[in-house]
């Protein structure tokens, strides 16, 4: 019976959190790897479209139509990233587990914006901006972070003629 209690408390105190952490790490890293693969593949496909942060166009461009295009992604951290970032928060420094997450978010948002521009037949996107906002976690009185939204937006232009 003593055995049973020791095992029970061992399980709830140590093994369960570790299992959760290991599971989150495994699943999280598989998802991250797949996402990066998909991002690289789609980026290769969108190679020809200029996506720039200039707010003016070259003077010799003749634009037939333009519109705002947006791309946005809402992405969440896994338990592993959260725990490691929490530990990092005690001593400071680069939160290395968050960096790939935000990198994914940025590139995915830009990709979605560019894909939407291409589907509508636009040739280039100017004045591209990125914005981030944190989504508060309603379950914990808005204290926790449910995830972040990354929004990319810019002015897509269709060219009538492009001299030069």
């Amino acid at each position: 019976m003593e055995d049973f209690f020791e095992k029970l408390s061992m399980f709830t105190n140590f093994i369960w959190p570790l299992l959760l952490l290991a599971g989150a790490y495994l699943v999280g890293s598989i998802i991250e790897k797949k996402h990066f693969q998909s991002i690289r593949k789609r980026e290769d496909g969108l190679h020809g479209i200029p996506v720039v942060s200039f707010d003016t166009m070259p003077e010799d461009w003749r634009v037939s139509s333009s519109d705002m295009v947006t791309g946005s992604i809402v992405i969440s951290l896994d338990y592993f990233k959260r725990v490691i970032a929490g530990l990092r928060g005690l001593i400071g420094g680069r939160i290395k587990t968050y960096e790939p997450l935000l990198e994914r978010a940025r590139r995915e948002a830009l990709l979605r914006m560019t894909e939407s521009a291409r589907e509508q037949g636009y040739d280039a996107i100017f004045n591209v901006r990125l914005e981030t906002s944190r989504l508060a976690n309603a379950g914990r009185d808005g204290k926790g972070t449910a995830g972040v939204e990354m929004l990319a937006f810019g002015t897509a232009v269709k060219l009538a003629s492009r001299i030069g």
């Binding site: 790490y25 490691i84 290395k96 587990t97 790939p100 935000l102 990198e103």
Partner: peptide, 11 residues
């Protein structure tokens, strides 16, 4: 923007 360090090493 992304560190080369393996997440498990940091953990």
């Amino acid at each position: 923007n992304v560190s080369d360090e393996h997440p498990l090493v940091e953990a």
